[in-house]
Amino acid sequence: MSDSLLSIRDLSITYHTQGRAVPAVRRVSLDIEKGGSLGLAGESGCGKSTLANSILRLLPAGTEVTGHITLDGKDVLGLTPGGLRAVRWTAGAIVFQGALHALNPVQTVGDQIAEPMSLHRTVADDDAAKVRVVELLRRVGLPAARAESFPHELSGGQRQRVLIAMALACDPQLLIADEPTTALDLMVQAQVLALLEDLKEERDLTLLFITHDLSVLTYACERLAVMYAGRIVEEGPAWEVFENGSHPYTRALAAAFPTIGDEGSRMAPSGLGGDPPTPGDLPGGCPFHPRCPLAHDACLPAEPELRVSGEARRAACVLV
């Protein structure tokens, strides 16, 4: 796949906390071609954010990472610290979740957007940076005066727009959107989605979109990958996976529907009892079997590998 912008091969990520090894991502392989879009779905704790952060090597020191990540032809895991800093935000940038404290509370948003520009010298001087900040803010639908605002003066939707503008600062090729619509109300969520879609077309961005909301992904992406317990359990064209999942877990996620007003259970997978397993303590065999409505003896002996389940589709389930 020479036209892949992002290629992940056999990626395993293990956290070491208090002497215990906690595998967060296990033998994941993924590809996104230039200009393509991939949606990564899964409940919280399945490893999707760890995967996203590993692409720019943002994991805490002491985390064990094996496998290969190739971004824009560069071997990310083999880069020197200087090489790594040069790749960050230029080859790939992240749209962080606005509900979290992703913005520094004591700096104006304009300064925060301009910071990577002067750092990577994508603008000539401070004045040029200011001009570009205003351009970016206008592009994401915010007035130029917002550059002087502090994060706490913005609404949740405005903060999310600022984070999008910030990610675009150095014209990255890959945009990693990590839960960019979570905790926004439905109206604003739709606006942010539309904005991301426009930007992708306009700037020929490659998009890795991460959320637990399968319907959002299906709307925004061409292809879908579903993660469970650190592994990809199903992958394929977005609509087909959403409509006709091969893995029971995918079907449960697809059947989830929003309950207005209840953030916690808004996207609880329908019909699934229990919680996802803790990464440090996975059940044997297929890790999904304790919650699977179709579990039977064949699920117990070994963890199923991904195999072809249709045209351009793969799934990891003994029933496939």
Binding site: N53, L58, F96, H101, N104, P116
Partner: peptide, 14 residues
């Protein structure tokens, strides 16, 4: 532990 430090690192800051 704050997220804005991860963001700063992601931007390529030393």
């Amino acid at each position: 532990g704050e997220d804005y430090l991860t963001v700063a690192r992601a931007k390529g800051l030393r």
